[in-house]
Amino acid sequence: MGTRQASADDLASVGFSALRCALATNIVWIGVLKFKQYEVENDEPLVTSSPLFSRLRAKLGAQRLNRLIGVTEIALGSLIAAKPLAPRASAIGSFGAIGMFLTTLSFLATTPEARQEGQGPLSLSQLGQFLLKDTVLISAALLTAAESLRAARPADCPRTL
């Protein structure tokens, strides 16, 4: 293997590790914040506009719903971080994060405050721009899922493309 290839492989390895660490940290940190009252208030426009979450909010109340979301986020972030010890569990965490981010992106369609009033449907407000970053996080979760699945594969299993 040439020096350039080794350097590219090393860089990719460092990049995957940094991506996994950043993704897990972001998800856990945001999950912890769900236990703060200001975060309950910040999430109100999102959950009250969502067909799914508005029903959950009506049943659980705003604070309990946020805590449930927080516990879910902490669990998913922890699973993603667990790749060295439990690669299959880490893949499950990554797939769960993909579902979570897809759900969050649905708020772009259901939350009127996500768009800048009077500027057309593609003009996102600050809230809409915040939600849009989840497209990048979905991509990160897809990569961490793939890397975890590779690590979970038995050594004698042939690699296919």
Rank of each mutant, 00 (worst) to 15 (best):
E39A: 07
L105N: 05
Q5Y: 03
A8D: 01
A109H: 13
L131P: 09
Q63H: 06
C21V: 13
N26W: 11
E41Y: 13
R20P: 02
G96C: 09
A91T: 12
L33Q: 12
P121C: 00
V71H: 13
D156V: 13
W29D: 06
S125Q: 12
S148K: 00
I80F: 08
M100F: 15
L19G: 02
T25F: 08
L68M: 15
A82C: 00
Q126N: 14
E44D: 09
D134T: 04
K59G: 14
I92K: 11
G128S: 06
M100Y: 12
D10I: 02
M100V: 15
A97K: 11
E147H: 11
A145L: 01
L143D: 06
I92H: 13
S17I: 10
A86G: 13
T160W: 14
G70F: 02
L124I: 13
P45D: 00
P51E: 06
V71S: 11
S148E: 00
I92Q: 14
G70K: 05
S78V: 00
L23P: 01
K59P: 13
D156N: 11
A8H: 03
R4L: 02
A8V: 05
N66K: 08
R4K: 07
S7Y: 01
I98H: 03
P87M: 03
G120V: 12
F35T: 01
T160I: 07
Q129I: 15
S54F: 07
L124W: 01
R57M: 06
A91P: 10
R153W: 01
E44R: 09
I92T: 10
T25Q: 06
Y38I: 07
R150H: 02
T3K: 10
I74L: 04
P154D: 03
A152P: 04
A82P: 09
V47Q: 12
A62G: 04
L127I: 11
A109D: 15
Q116T: 13
L142R: 08
L68E: 10
E44P: 14
D134G: 07
S90F: 08
A146H: 10
L137Q: 08
P87W: 03
D134F: 02
M100T: 15
A140V: 05
S125H: 03
P84S: 11
A89H: 15
Q37C: 07
L19P: 12
A12F: 02
L79K: 07
L137K: 07
R57T: 06
Q129V: 10
G61R: 04
P112M: 00
Q126D: 15
L161R: 08
T111F: 10
I69K: 06
